[in-house]
Design a protein around this nucleic acid. Sequence first.
RNA 1: GGCCUCAUAGUUCAAUGGAUAGAACGAAAGUUUCCUAAACUUUAAAUGCAGGUUCGAUUCCUGCUGGGGCUACCA
Length: 628
Amino acid sequence: MENLKTILSKAVVDIFKQKFDTEIAAENLTFSDTSKNFEGDITLVVFPLLRYSKLKPEATGETIGNELVQLDIVESFNVVKGFLNLIISDTYWSTYFKGIFANDDFGKGVQKEKKVLIEYSSPNTNKPLHLGHVRNNVLGSAVAGILKAAGYQVHTCNLVNDRGIHICKSMLAWEKAGAKDTPDNTGLKGDKLVGSYYVEFEKSLQAQAQPLMEKVLAKDFSDINKDEKQKIQDAVSRYYDADESKKADLKDAVKTLIRNATPIMHEAREMLQKWETGDREVLALWNKMNGWVYDGFDVTYKALGVSFDKTYYESNTYLLGKNIVEEGLTKGILFKKEDGSVWIDLTDEGLDQKLLLRADGTSVYMTQDLGTADLRYQDFKMDQSVYVVGNEQEYHFQVLKLILKKLGRTYADGIYHFSYGMVDLPSGKMKSREGTVVDADDLIDEMIATAKKNTIELGKMDEFTSEEAGNLYRIIGLGALKFYLLRVDPVKRILFNPQESIDLQGYTGPFVQYSYARIQSIMRRFYKDYQELQVQNLQDLKPIEKELIIKMSQYPDTVEFAASELNPAKLVDYIYELAKLYNKFYSELSIFNDGDDNTHKRCTLSLMTGRILKSGFNIVGMDVPDRM
RNA sequence: GGCCUCAUAGUUCAAUGGAUAGAACGAAAGUUUCCUAAACUUUAAAUGCAGGUUCGAUUCCUGCUGGGGCUACCA
């Protein structure tokens, strides 16, 4: 069906042709919602048209308004300064509403050719998922859902960082602790077990690094092996020579070198090299421990309700990356330093030199990302590739895109880093060393437990079986959590206040869910009392009824907008507003005590509202309950 | 130092360059013989600072102040 703005745009273009003898482009017309302080269903902003009309704002508005009321759909108008407020006829809204009511796919965009691949989650296998990953997963699956709803061909993937020094640290610590704990004999979730050994490793590392640091700062280098001695001596003298203002940074630099110079780090790096050369024992251990981690991740993903069309593993792609590095060397895009390390010089692009292969031949993050990029393109041939990764990696993706471009990869242009802000706690940043990281599983459990507690307190569980109840708590708890994370513009940091996040009132997921459940309750009663819903002409629309229809009419545009902006918050906010408006409608008007016509009309409106609330929530990965 | 990013009621968030800047929480007051009060109604309360572009700036540009990030042979 033709959209209101389209109809009005055409009419206004005609008016300008006839009245002012000028051609204006329909795209230049700005229609906006009418401000609450004025009467109208939709507003045309006439300021931009003054140069065509050559009249004052009021006169221009009057002229356009006088012509528009000739249309059946425009009932009346008023002009305030440069704003032409139009009142649209009930007949139009009635016809329009019947159209969208009959459309099962209302809100969904037309199918598009464009193919998009969305990568999100991307965990490391050395520790469990935390709140930061939760934001990533929730955003990633929401963006995928929105693009799908907007009509794009969407695929999702996960890139698991399953190899590298971090997992070797856990492996080493596990071996040193006797190599006997398993998820089975400890009862721990696999990722938790492996993560605990990562923590163990860090403790041992700390224990070795601290005395070494003290010695070195006292200029005693006897415990440093000769390969590292020179660098460390240099760093220490830079530290002592520096001004006060720079001392902290330079001390950190020394610390980093010291950490790398500890015996336990040497062991970890040896293990990594063994891994890269295919040492069977190391590989077996690696497989075993990663397997535990995947079992653990599966539980978390399932609890979060996210999934992927394809999972990539760095262990399968880093070699491809090494080949690409070779290719780059051959093409003269990359260069080798004396120590054998490979770099790209991006100083011409305003960036720095970037390492692609270590001196010992092992690969870094960038190396495997190059390989993965090629592989993904072979698999999906996508037009656009969205990486949902935190904003601390903006530089990385800038470099990745540049390198791929220099290598002549045509798909490089389609690479888009969906960069989102970090999650902070009221106490500040999450820091694993300080134990302030919010664990994903714990968080989910806590949300569900709070949902349970509140629901029981409200005494609403009489009609539920225990299975239904458990399901309800899960829907509410996750709805609260996801809504809390999605309602904020992705580019912004989120302040995660545990207290607030589990609020179930106000601007929250449960508010929307409650509105939906209310509607279902209405509809249950309706079908009990009446045979079937008669979708008649909607007559005598009350202001709130019309407002509700207008709000519903904006759903498809909102989905489209959220897709073009890649911003789930736009859709989430709209759904909340619709629910809020519905609650107002619900309290202002009686559905069952105002005559049969009104009952049918208001149930039709209720049913449609419910469909949109559900559809919108589902798109971004949330669920709604039939009763709560 | 360089690059990127953010700054709006007491707090957490909104506002395709458009009207008198919206919500929620918190604060104050009210609504339940009637469809689910996890709701609704009312009150008080905000654009960091200084310029510029524009008919019009919270939005775009410049500078400043403040927070965060990046600038690793970590990922």
